[in-house]
Write a protein that binds this DNA or RNA. Structure first.
Lengths: 243, 243
DNA sequence: CAGTGGTCTAGACCACTGA
DNA sequence: CAGTGGTCTAGACCACTGG
């Protein structure tokens, strides 16, 4: 395995190393179960300090690609490399998967926060919030009903923009960056209206997801209560033991 | 905020610090939005090096409790502290929540691996695997149907032990430690038999979860295909932006 | 025993933020 | 500008694993 470093690049060294080891795994150069060189050798060979090399490896351990054991070494995990659910929006995910997402905006209006929404967003009840209801399509098939609430001060976009781009992308372009999200995933049967909007039968099972997203200062940016068709959507998650 | 360190303890210093900051947040001494001292001061005050102090803070950032910004500082995240879904078993979760889990074992037998299961476990088709079917109750209410497959060499427990303890606890006590798990969460409607076993109506929505768990050497330890009642179970997840 | 990763130190320089 | 976190170095000692 050869790794090339660009010390002039703004990309941190540990990240360059992690990325290239990850690619070696993806390309099959590092096969599942095989052992990496020990971190001291690797660090020496690349002209890095040991802490920097450790950090690169740690990146991949916490992604679930590598496993380390004291006294043994570092090994590549068996099993196909599944990508962890990152903190991304549905729109981004679909775009990346060439699913051609489109959006229809059903509601887009400012109203006073109900008690429930105020709690989720950490604002005063009655404070102005923007309520959005959208239907998201993938390859012209309805996939999800998206209901969102945001503090009105953050929702400086037009309905037309919402039809074009994802909510998170719009927030990013106005300087709002989402750092943490806490979600709850459940299931229930679809109501008649929901079934109609999603193009499924009344009583079909749907996935539900409630999410509160927090921005750079740790305050709530968005609360969402979404419904997904269960016949063409599921959530994938990778859990790694916190060492 | 005062933090006490025990340098004689086998518990790492960064962990002692992280735990005590976390407790200060839980107790409300550090309120949401408030800023921590900068890491250099904290390190000096506690007699630690800066990297060690950074690591303690980083623990809490990746748990979603703190947010850091260059040039600004470190702040406590708004919103109630929700515990992240850790890599634990359902049995452990229920025990921790005083839900008094009990288990009924419906099947417990060794058979050759089907092609499908062989792929999930990374073993040869036809290799001996143990198949388990259990119903998990919480406070005497059925909660989930648990179907699991394990390489036969790892399943050295009795049916009676399975009725008493969770699968992960049994594996731990035989020296098998789970490090990584990859799950997929979906929904569908319950079949007649499933509905009967779970005490719900036929056609009710259920949550489905498929999971492959990997052990210390990175090889598959267990594959599970579980069904949860959606009226009393949901999955909670906290996502943190990978910096 | 030799080899591995886990923890910790004491510094250094840089990039970004806000006043 | 001063203050913050982000990255990186060059060591040190320890704990655990296997033969």
């Amino acid at each position: 395995m050869d790794i090339e470093l660009d010390r002039g690049s703004p990309v941190p060294l540990y990240f360059q190393v992690a990325r290239q080891i990850e690619q070696a795994i993806e390309r099959g150069e590092l096969v599942p179960g095989s052992r990496l060189e020990n971190e001291i050798e690797l660090a020496d060979r690349l002209g890095l300090s040991r802490p920097t090399m450790r950090r690169a490896i740690q990146e991949l351990v916490s992604k679930g690609l590598l496993v380390r054991r004291r006294g043994i070494g570092t090994q590549v995990v068996h099993g196909q490399v599944k990508r962890r659910v990152e903190l991304t929006s549905l729109h981004d995910d679909l775009t990346r998967g060439n699913q051609h997402p489109t959006t229809r905006v059903l509601e887009h209006e400012t109203r006073p926060a109900s008690d429930d929404i105020a709690v989720h967003l950490g604002v005063q009840p009655g404070a102005p919030v923007v309520r959005l209801v959208r239907i998201r399509y993938a390859q012209d098939e309805p996939l999800a009903i998206l209901r969102n609430w945001l503090p009105a001060s953050l929702a400086s976009f037009t309905t037309a923009e919402l039809e074009e781009r994802g909510l998170y992308a719009l927030l990013r372009s106005t300087g709002v960056h989402i750092r943490i999200a806490s979600q709850r995933i459940g299931a229930r049967t679809a109501s008649g209206e929901e079934a109609h909007q999603l193009g499924i039968k009344r009583g079909a099972a749907v996935l539900t997801m409630e999410r509160t997203a927090y921005g750079e200062s740790g305050s709530a940016v968005e609360f969402g209560a979404h419904i997904y068709r269960s016949d063409n959507y599921s959530f994938e998650i990778t859990l790694v033991e916190r060492s």
